[in-house]
Design a protein around this nucleic acid. Structure first.
Lengths: 124, 124
DNA sequence: CAAATGTGTATATCTGATATATACACTATA
DNA sequence: TATAGTGTATATATCAGATATACACATTTG
């Protein structure tokens, strides 16, 4: 479980954890039944509070990605990757929508956005 | 000066004001030397506090878009629209970048993003 | 099987950003 | 010069993010 958090990011720490756990599930790095690091262990590793890791795990549990048991630990639930794909697609769609609004305000043509898209998607 | 704010939005009120003033400058609705509504008048119209309108105007002043004079009012400064265009382009670029990250996580191909872009940009 | 250790959980609290009420200071004008 | 309109400053309220500490349960180990 490689998880990295950034204090400079404006994204809350617990959201960063949630995102990265989802990524690891999507990549196959985490499979059904796999144990997540304990809230304490993760908190210690990231030098943050247990309450914050708990909050992240709570959100993951609420969204059906993991399951937690008092005294035992937290585990990955059976996952439908297609569901995750749809979630990421929806997020991308929303971001592109906002990008289009900004572009229109600036008088930026759609063709310019297509170029940007190719450059950014390709150039990683 | 038509300004509309949404309480349900997660964007702060003062940021909503800032954005919309920039939009009106970009659209030519507000020109150099034009007087903005007084902080009090705008606050009353939007049913918000003067402090909030002041904060919005402060940000606009800090970014060089307007100028405020105690006892006189707030006025639009000379504007370089190209500067605003660049700002919007930069914002769009950043959004597209994040969208690409999400898409990659979901295994969404770049071609699908191009389709989305056309649909969203066109379909307003 | 009881003690110890490791797990998740709950309560009260701190901090920073957003928004506010109220009072103050300056300018124009009637 | 009084008054009404402008921007400004100080102290306060509220909410989300993050926390410390103490609690409850499960597993391991002597």
């Amino acid at each position: 479980m490689d998880i990295v958090i950034s204090n400079s990011s404006n994204e809350p720490i617990y959201e960063q954890i949630v995102s990265q756990v989802k990524e690891q599930i999507m990549s196959g790095n985490l499979k059904e039944g796999d144990a997540l690091p304990s809230m304490r262990a993760l908190a210690q590793a990231l030098r943050i509070s247990v309450i914050t890791t708990k909050r992240a795990y709570e959100e993951l549990e609420r969204d059906g990605f993991i399951e937690s048991f008092t005294g035992r630990g937290s585990f990955v639930k059976a996952q439908n990757k297609e569901l995750l794909r749809e979630e990421y697609l929806r997020q991308a769609e929303e971001l592109i929508s906002t990008a289009c609004e900004k572009a229109k305000l600036g008088g930026v043509d759609v063709s310019e956005l297509h170029e940007l898209l190719d450059i950014i998607y390709g150039g990683e």
